[in-house]
Nucleic acid binder design. Structure first.
Length: 462
RNA sequence: GGCUAGGUGGCAGAGUGGUCAUGCAGCGGCCUGCAAAGCCGCGUACAGCGGUUCGAUUCCGCUCCUAGCCUCCA
């Protein structure tokens, strides 16, 4: 039984799709005006994992992740660059796709872009006006009237009065209430705009997601995800818009992933403490290391980004690949370990516990290898691989993986093999001083050796 | 100030009312020409103070501390 923590109720709930065996899931994706950083990678990885797991247990998943391609930040950045805003958004959306592909994230089934949904956005805005939830403000913007929506604040646990008291929002003359938010912004000179019943303008951020999600998944769907920081006001506003416009409940389960931190502070553009996926990947043995790192703590908690943590993820992953090496991967799976693994994942996607199950399998695999029980080893390897497939790790050829280096290679494979042959000859002649000298030479070049029983030597890169 | 999450062994990180997390690092042993890897074994935890309980790291209360949201943000 799959249980998921529902941010709306604050507790883990048994997951039951609204429509049998079908899961409709929407995740707030990126506003693409720059390269994605590790914080974004966590959100993308978490929901990639979730949709993979839902599929692996047999659900027919429709995974929608949008792209915001019109926004203040895009316009500002484009202006600063002297670049066309649409070109800039396209350029960084392409870059995001490249990064996602490198990280082996499965592409969402649908990836709507805000500018493709101007029609539905206008229609929804009009409906909100017609139903009395929205009004045209004095400055030409269309605003949502928060006080008209009784359930406002339910998701974020905020009370409208508290929000007013602590509000840092400038009291704008155009708003009837400081908490009202914009659905449609009137065009300022030189800004991109679309024709609307309220004059030329562009959509507000919140309405985009309401329009895209309900257009593609219907007015009431199973899962809506995003970063913790979107809970308020973005998701709160989505609920207000969608419920009011559609007259139905909006989302069954809300899911929010925790932040990536750097020295106990949220990684963010504004703090300037961010690392782009591109720069981080250059320092890693494989993109898989970043995924493994992100999966090594629970998706709802914070995770601290540091090179030490990344190094540990690398080390742990290497150990798993070492276990897999020369073990084959066939035979019956170990149902006990599989059950523990599934139990962990069924418990609100508890990846650290799932990883612990994988370690247990790896230990048994190593035991089987040590005792020469190759069929048991192959069976354990198959189990481990299957678990890895669910998490999106451990799918590479072990030997190839182990020979990868962090950064540039300091010695070619052929040079390594040549020195290994010389060392082998020395060992055969019991010239251990010479063989140790060669080993040290290789170690200095970042090549680590393992002499196996029977005289063979395996190597890998540090 | 309001609201929401947390504070677990050297580090990372799950979890539980009473028996094991797991990984890295450390220590001892096996294996090895020596290593490495692996295996076996060992140790060190539950912020503080009260309360409930036969028994609490786990439940309740208070205190302290941290982070996040309350403005764009994954």
């Amino acid at each position: 039984m799959l249980k998921i923590h529902n941010s709306l109720t604050g507790v883990k709930e048994e997951f039951k799709p609204l429509s049998a065996n079908e899961v409709r899931m929407y995740v707030c994706g990126m506003t693409n005006y720059d390269y994605i950083h590790v914080g974004h990678a966590r959100m993308l990885t978490v929901f990639d994992l979730i949709q993979r797991y839902l599929r692996s247990v047999g659900y027919a998943v429709t995974y929608v992740r949008n792209v915001t391609d019109i926004d203040d930040k895009i316009i500002e950045r484009a202006a600063a660059n002297g670049e066309n805003w649409a070109d800039l958004a396209r350029r960084f959306t392409t870059a995001m796709h490249e990064d996602c592909a490198t990280l082996e994230l499965q592409a969402p089934d649908l990836e709507p872009r805000a500018t493709e949904y101007i029609g539905p956005i206008i229609a929804m805005t009009q409906t909100l006006i017609d139903k009395g939830y929205a009004y045209v403000a004095g400055n030409g913007d269309v605003m949502y009237s928060v006080r008209k929506f009784a359930a406002y604040g339910r998701l974020s646990g905020k009370k409208i009065d508290d929000l007013r008291a602590g509000s840092r929002v400038q009291v704008d003359d155009a708003k009837l209430d400081p908490l009202d938010f914009v659905l449609w912004k009137h065009a300022k000179p030189g800004e991109p705009s679309w024709v609307s019943p309220w004059g030329d303008g562009r959509p507000g951020w919140h309405i985009e997601c309401s329009a895209m999600s309900t257009s593609l998944l219907g007015s009431y769907f199973d899962i809506h995800g995003g970063g913790e920081d979107l809970k308020f006001p973005h998701h709160e506003n989505e609920i207000a818009q969608s419920c009011a416009a559609c007259g139905t409940p909006f989302v069954h389960m809300w899911m929010h992933n925790g932040f990536v931190r750097v020295n106990d502070e949220k990684m963010s553009k504004s703090l300037g403490n961010f690392f782009t996926v591109r720069e981080v990947l250059k320092t890693l043995r494989a993109p898989e290391v970043l995924r493994f790192f992100l999966l090594s703590s629970h998706y709802r908690g914070p995770i601290n980004y540091s090179t030490a943590q990344l190094a540990q993820a690398d080390e742990t992953l290497l150990g798993l690949y070492r276990a897999l090496k020369d073990a084959g991967a066939s035979g019956p799976m170990d149902e006990q370990w599989l059950a523990r693994f599934r139990g962990a994942m069924d418990d609100d996607f508890n990846t650290p516990e799932a990883l612990a199950a994988m370690q247990g399998v790896a230990r048994e695999l190593n035991q089987a290898k040590a005792s020469g029980n190759s069929s048991k080893a192959a069976s354990a390897a198959a189990t481990l691989r299957a678990m890895g497939a669910v998490l999106g790790v451990l799918q590479q050829d072990p030997d190839t993986y182990l020979k990868r280096s962090v950064g540039d290679k300091t010695m070619s494979d052929t040079d390594v093999e040549a020195l290994l042959a010389a060392r082998q000859a020395a060992r055969a002649a019991k010239l251990f001083a010479e063989s140790d000298r060669i080993r040290e030479q290789l170690t200095a070049a970042g090549i680590l050796l393992e002499d196996k029983a029977g005289g063979a030597t395996q190597w890998r890169r540090a």
